[in-house]
């Protein structure tokens, strides 16, 4: 860790000391890793199929038609049926290892008796039940989490690149440039964000990238504002004048002095930005103006859940998941703040 400055090391150690924040961070990272490998755990495709001496790994790659396993159809093999068939024939032809949850988030697993939604059922491996159209709730939760996290990180990176660049320039250069953008931001941040998103999404059904761009359009001002204040404050410090007087160039001052000293502003907001990304995507999906329909999303589950209050497992599982994730993110946020900006209260009595 020698390439980190002593201050960074100290901050890292302070972060580790805030136990609940540190553990939340570890758990959340593990969950994110898990969700990126979700195809291996929650999927309708088998992990391994051994059939008549040949071994298949169907998880990734193009689908294997049913005819390969002597089914009479050309479309993708139903591995759950294959497993049943092989079990009945006492595994003479081979075996199938299915993921823990043998469903993908898109398939409607309908039953002959009754109509969905079906309550949680361990025999069918619908651990959290199914939604209104018979899709597995757990599978949709897991894949929805992956999309929400990817979305939040995308949002974070884009808003931060705009916010830091523009805010730094506004604060450091000041003058007319600063004033023009100040007015622009004031107008822009007063535009009712949800109105515009709803109007936009009702014209075209937005895909992931479009929704991201729309959200970035409305979330850059706040970061720009914080960064502007921070750069403005640093600019007035003596060390900047000192650097100038020994002949440092503007880029050098910006990248070697102003930016590193504003890092606490930048980092402290990261967890809260992530939480905001997840909540606003979920809110949009809940209203039906988010990602297009079959995409697994928490907001869509929330919407189904609140409309079918009698099928309480839907709303219960998505709300629990949201509470769990958001509280962890907030714990991390508090810990990061503590690490970068420690406030020691002396108690007077």
């Amino acid at each position: 860790m020698s390439w980190f400055s002593p201050q960074t090391k100290k901050r890292f150690l302070r972060f580790r000391k805030v136990k609940r924040g540190y553990w939340s961070f570890n758990i959340l990272m593990a969950l994110i890793m898990f969700s990126f490998a979700a195809e291996l755990f929650v999927n309708s495709r088998a992990i391994i199929v051994s059939y008549q001496g040949k071994v298949y790994f169907p998880t990734y790659g193009s689908f294997i038609p049913g005819t390969t396993f002597d089914f009479d159809y050309e479309y993708e093999t139903n591995y759950r049926d294959l497993k049943k068939r092989l079990n009945q024939s006492n595994n003479a032809d081979g075996f199938v290892i299915m993921p823990l949850v043998p469903y993908n988030p898109y398939e409607n697993n309908l039953k002959d008796e009754g109509y969905p939604p079906f309550p949680p059922n361990f025999a069918d491996k619908h651990y959290l039940g199914t939604d209104n159209t018979g899709r597995d709730v757990l599978a949709r939760l897991v894949y929805g989490f992956r999309i929400a996290i990817l979305f939040s990180f995308g949002l974070l990176i884009l808003t931060y690149s705009i916010g830091i660049t523009l805010g730094c320039a506004m604060g450091y250069f000041g003058g007319r440039f600063d004033i023009v953008f100040q007015r622009l931001i004031e107008v822009w941040s007063n535009v009712p964000f949800l109105y515009v998103v709803i109007i936009m999404s009702s014209i075209v059904v937005p895909n992931f990238t479009m929704l991201l761009v729309i959200m970035v359009l409305f979330s850059w001002p706040s970061m720009t504002w914080y960064m502007r204040t921070s750069a403005y404050k640093e600019k007035a410090r003596d060390y900047v004048s000192a650097a100038k007087s020994i002949g440092a160039s503007t880029p050098r001052i910006l990248f070697h002095h102003v930016l590193p000293n504003s890092v606490s502003t930048i980092v402290t907001f990261v967890p809260f930005q992530i939480a905001a990304g997840i909540t606003s995507l979920t809110a949009l999906d809940y209203l039906g103006f988010g990602l297009p329909s079959p995409t697994p999303s928490w907001g869509e589950l929330l919407q189904q859940g609140t409309e079918n209050l009698s099928s309480s497992w839907i709303v219960a599982s998505v709300v629990c998941m949201m509470v769990f994730i958001l509280i962890m993110v907030t714990f991390i946020g508090e810990a990061v703040r503590e690490a970068f900006d420690p406030k020691k209260h002396s108690i007077f009595q």
């Binding site: 939480a275 809110a283 809940y286 929330l302 859940g305 709303v315 709300v319 949201m322 509470v323 958001l326």
Partner: peptide, 9 residues
Amino acid sequence: ALPSYVVAV
């Protein structure tokens, strides 16, 4: 930590 709409739900 929770947005108000989740609390509402």
